[in-house]
Amino acid sequence: ATVHVKGVTYHFDNPEQAEKFAKRMAKELNGEVHVDGNTWHVD
């Protein structure tokens, strides 16, 4: 799974980790999470 945060890409072997990371980053950055298959975007 892949997480894109403000133009930076993070790779996770575990999709659950990717989801938790994306949601945590969105919270910290006051952003929104969008999911597209195995790819998470934090804007």
Rank of each mutant, 00 (worst) to 15 (best):
A1S: 09
A1L: 07
A1G: 10
A1Q: 08
A1K: 04
A1T: 08
A1V: 11
T2G: 03
T2L: 10
T2V: 12
T2K: 12
T2I: 12
T2E: 08
V3R: 00
V3P: 00
V3Y: 00
V3S: 00
V3C: 03
V3T: 02
V3W: 00
V3N: 00
V3K: 00
H4W: 14
H4P: 00
H4V: 15
H4G: 03
V5A: 05
V5M: 06
V5Q: 01
V5S: 03
V5L: 08
V5R: 02
V5G: 02
K6R: 13
K6E: 08
K6D: 14
K6N: 15
K6F: 15
K6L: 15
K6Y: 12
G7R: 04
G7P: 03
G7A: 04
G7I: 02
V8N: 09
V8L: 10
V8A: 08
V8C: 09
V8E: 10
V8R: 12
V8D: 07
T9N: 06
T9Y: 09
T9Q: 09
T9V: 14
Y10I: 05
Y10N: 01
Y10E: 01
Y10S: 02
Y10T: 03
Y10Q: 02
Y10F: 10
Y10K: 03
Y10W: 07
H11R: 09
H11S: 08
H11L: 09
H11T: 08
H11G: 04
F12V: 01
F12I: 01
F12H: 01
F12W: 03
F12T: 00
F12E: 00
F12Y: 03
F12Q: 00
F12C: 03
F12A: 00
D13N: 11
D13L: 09
D13F: 07
D13C: 06
D13M: 09
D13K: 10
N14M: 08
N14Y: 10
N14D: 14
N14Q: 08
N14A: 08
P15Y: 12
P15D: 09
P15T: 10
P15I: 12
E16L: 11
E16Q: 11
Q17K: 10
Q17M: 12
Q17D: 15
Q17G: 06
Q17N: 10
Q17V: 11
Q17E: 15
A18R: 01
A18M: 01
A18F: 00
A18P: 00
A18Y: 00
A18V: 00
A18I: 00
E19T: 04
E19I: 05
E19F: 05
E19P: 01
K20M: 12
K20E: 15
K20P: 03
K20V: 12
K20H: 10
K20A: 15
K20D: 13
F21E: 03
F21N: 01
F21S: 01
F21L: 02
F21M: 03
A22Y: 01
A22Q: 01
A22F: 02
A22D: 00
A22N: 00
A22E: 01
K23I: 14
K23F: 13
K23G: 05
K23C: 07
K23R: 12
K23Y: 14
R24L: 14
R24V: 09
R24Q: 15
R24F: 14
R24T: 11
R24K: 14
R24P: 01
M25N: 03
M25L: 11
M25V: 11
M25P: 01
M25G: 01
M25T: 06
A26P: 00
A26D: 01
A26I: 03
A26Q: 05
A26V: 04
A26E: 04
A26M: 04
A26Y: 02
A26W: 03
K27N: 10
K27S: 11
K27W: 12
K27E: 13
K27G: 07
K27C: 05
K27F: 12
K27Y: 13
E28R: 10
E28I: 11
E28W: 08
E28M: 10
E28Y: 08
E28H: 08
E28P: 02
E28N: 06
L29A: 04
L29Y: 07
L29M: 10
L29T: 07
L29G: 04
N30Y: 06
N30G: 14
N30L: 07
N30F: 07
N30P: 05
N30R: 09
G31F: 09
G31I: 06
G31M: 15
G31W: 08
G31T: 08
G31S: 08
G31R: 05
G31P: 01
G31L: 15
E32M: 14
E32T: 15
E32I: 15
E32Y: 14
E32L: 14
E32G: 08
E32N: 12
E32P: 04
V33Y: 12
V33E: 03
V33N: 02
V33L: 13
V33S: 05
V33Q: 03
H34Q: 07
H34P: 01
H34C: 06
H34N: 07
H34K: 12
V35K: 14
V35F: 15
V35H: 13
V35M: 11
V35W: 14
D36A: 10
D36K: 12
D36T: 13
G37L: 04
G37T: 03
G37K: 06
G37M: 05
G37Q: 06
G37V: 04
G37S: 05
G37A: 05
N38I: 07
N38K: 06
N38Y: 10
N38F: 11
N38H: 10
T39R: 12
T39F: 07
T39H: 15
T39Y: 07
T39W: 04
T39Q: 13
T39S: 13
T39K: 11
T39M: 11
W40R: 01
W40S: 02
W40G: 01
W40F: 13
W40D: 01
W40T: 02
H41A: 06
H41D: 04
H41M: 11
H41T: 15
H41R: 13
V42I: 09
V42G: 02
V42W: 02
V42K: 01
V42H: 01
V42D: 02
D43Q: 14
D43N: 14
D43E: 14
D43P: 04
D43F: 15
D43V: 15
D43G: 12
D43K: 15
